[in-house]
């Protein structure tokens, strides 16, 4: 087996042999990512209506279903309507703290059996139980940490109370977000990711970041587009107007 030192030494040797190098540089990282991220957020505080329109257009182009509700109180009814449409009986959600609201009571009234993930749960028994619940649920309710207009993409960070499977195992994924989550371009996402990486509070929060652009899809059989291969067959985004 090759050791690290030996492996890197070989690479170093080859790199130093390279003839006729020309000037090339990588993309310029923001010198102060936190400030750069703040600037992006400030700009978007003004421009969010345009960003939202663009998101809606792109999200629908990738077969996403867009909803708009006046405030958080109206969210459960919107989710209830989606559930009824699918005959869904069971839902899993992120921890109310991660979601920004407690969906369970209202959804239960809507006739759904709801399991909310709890922050701090991390033992093996809880893990297996939750996986089982998520695999049986038809509906998964999450928030979104960034909502990217340019491509119609929902960006979710995993972490405590934010299981990875909520947006993956159920047939239908519903993400709820407000205006403060909108960004316009991939470039801005780059800035946000740089900022996340240097933020001591958030850098170690969860190990996975998922960019979700529409439902799971494939065209592997005769290039026929088919939705819902492994992940959700449908993705809904509920925009909450009240800041």
């Amino acid at each position: 087996m090759t050791g690290r030192a030996e492996f890197l030494e070989r690479i170093r040797r080859e790199v130093s042999k390279t003839p006729g190098l020309f000037g090339a540089s990588t993309a310029t990282r923001p010198a102060d990512p936190a400030t750069a991220a703040e600037t992006v957020r400030r700009e978007l505080a003004e421009r969010w209506p345009q960003a939202l329109e663009r998101f809606r257009g792109e999200f629908e182009r990738v077969a996403g279903v867009f909803h708009r509700v006046p405030d958080l109180a109206a969210v459960p009814a919107a989710i209830g309507a989606i559930a009824r449409e699918h005959g869904a009986l069971r839902a899993v959600t992120w921890d109310p703290a991660a979601l920004g609201f407690d969906a369970a009571p209202a959804l239960t009234r809507e006739g759904l059996e709801v399991v909310a993930a709890r922050a701090g749960q991390e033992d093996e028994a809880a893990r297996l139980r939750h996986r089982e619940q998520a695999a049986r649920a038809q509906l998964g309710v999450t928030g979104a940490d960034l909502v990217l207009a340019e491509t119609g993409t929902l960006i979710l960070l995993s972490g405590s109370g934010r299981p990875r499977s909520t947006s993956l195992l159920p047939d239908v994924h519903v993400a709820v977000f407000g205006r403060d989550r909108l960004v316009e371009t991939l470039e801005q996402v780059g800035v946000m990711l740089e900022a996340l990486h240097v933020d001591p509070d958030r850098a170690m929060s969860g190990a996975m970041i998922n960019f979700i652009t529409g439902p799971s899809r494939t065209a592997d059989i005769e290039l026929t587009l088919t939705r819902g291969v492994h992940g959700p067959k449908e993705v809904h985004a509920i925009f909450v107007e009240a800041p």
């Binding site: 792109e58 990738v62 340019e150 491509t151 119609g152 993409t153 990711l193 190990a207 996975m208 970041i209 998922n210 960019f211 979700i212 652009t213 529409g214 439902p215 799971s216 899809r217 992940g231």
Partner: peptide
């Protein structure tokens, strides 16, 4: 596609 359905960052 503008982006594939899933871009997964594993940290």
């Amino acid at each position: 596609q503008k982006l594939s359905s899933y871009t997964t960052l594993v940290r």
